[in-house]
Simulated scan of single mutants.
Amino acid sequence: MRLTLHTFLTIDGVMQGPGGPEEDASGGFDQGGWVVPYAGPEFDEIVDSWFTRADAILLGRSTYEMFLGYWPRVTDPENLVASKLNALPKYVASRTLRDPSWSNTTVVDGVDQIRALKEQPGGELQVHGSCGLARELHRAGLIDEYRLITFPVTLGQGKRLFTPELPPTAFTVLESRTASSGLSYAVLTPSAITPGGEYVVVDGVSAIA
């Protein structure tokens, strides 16, 4: 399976608490719910397009427990996200969880087990949110595709996807677009950083030396 990461970001890279004030207040974060003013049909279409491709779901424990508190109660068969999350195999990365209560859930406790999941047949193993897990997967080079929705907000605080200790990475842009609400969407695959030349200006003309 291909491992794909899906998340919402602010312009300054924060991914904490996008859905509401109580979603994740850890570390004193009090700016939750920053996605809400920009959600709409275009946002919904992008998110639905993610879940149509999902064959299995991989979550960090905090995101898993947050999803568990909401999605099993959504029983409308027309709700694509709920139908997929409730029916598909789910994997939760945790070293302490022993008895997950959401149906079709298996606990995995390390990068090696996730690497083994990728070797199984299927289409996409999707990670949603799960900041700490996403960083570990990025560090291990296990993410095949990044699907990022960026919102026109800066918060100055909160958990970030890309932090200084993570390895530098270049990306190839597979898709990009903007929505009328101001959000932007990018689909990226990781690639090696290619050393470049020097940016210079000669006789008023800029060029790469």
Results as ranks from 00 to 15, higher is better:
115 R>E: 12
57 I>M: 14
33 G>H: 05
107 V>F: 05
147 R>C: 11
97 L>I: 09
110 G>A: 05
17 G>V: 09
18 P>W: 03
109 D>S: 15
204 G>L: 05
85 L>E: 13
4 T>V: 13
142 L>A: 09
209 A>F: 06
82 A>T: 06
142 L>H: 04
158 G>E: 03
119 E>V: 00
88 L>Y: 11
50 W>L: 12
66 M>Y: 12
202 V>R: 15
158 G>D: 02
208 I>L: 12
167 P>G: 03
42 E>I: 02
45 E>C: 01
112 D>L: 07
142 L>R: 04
151 F>C: 06
205 V>Y: 04
41 P>H: 01
7 T>A: 14
120 Q>K: 10
42 E>G: 03
64 Y>V: 08
165 E>I: 11
19 G>K: 10
200 V>Y: 05
34 W>R: 11
70 Y>W: 12
184 S>Y: 09
104 N>S: 13
202 V>W: 02
70 Y>M: 11
142 L>D: 04
140 A>I: 09
50 W>N: 11
126 Q>V: 08
19 G>P: 07
163 T>W: 00
72 P>A: 08
133 L>T: 02
140 A>M: 10
36 V>S: 04
85 L>N: 12
35 V>P: 01
84 K>E: 12
189 T>N: 04
169 T>R: 14
16 Q>S: 04
162 F>K: 03
113 Q>K: 15
34 W>G: 06
119 E>C: 03
102 W>H: 01
97 L>V: 09
55 D>Q: 09
130 S>F: 07
110 G>E: 01
10 T>N: 05
64 Y>P: 12
9 L>T: 05
108 V>N: 01
35 V>S: 11
72 P>G: 09
53 R>Y: 04
20 G>D: 01
179 A>C: 13
180 S>L: 10
43 F>E: 09
202 V>D: 15
192 A>I: 05
86 N>C: 15
83 S>W: 00
146 Y>E: 08
17 G>N: 01
178 T>G: 15
159 K>R: 14
177 R>S: 13
76 D>Y: 11
27 G>Q: 02
104 N>V: 05
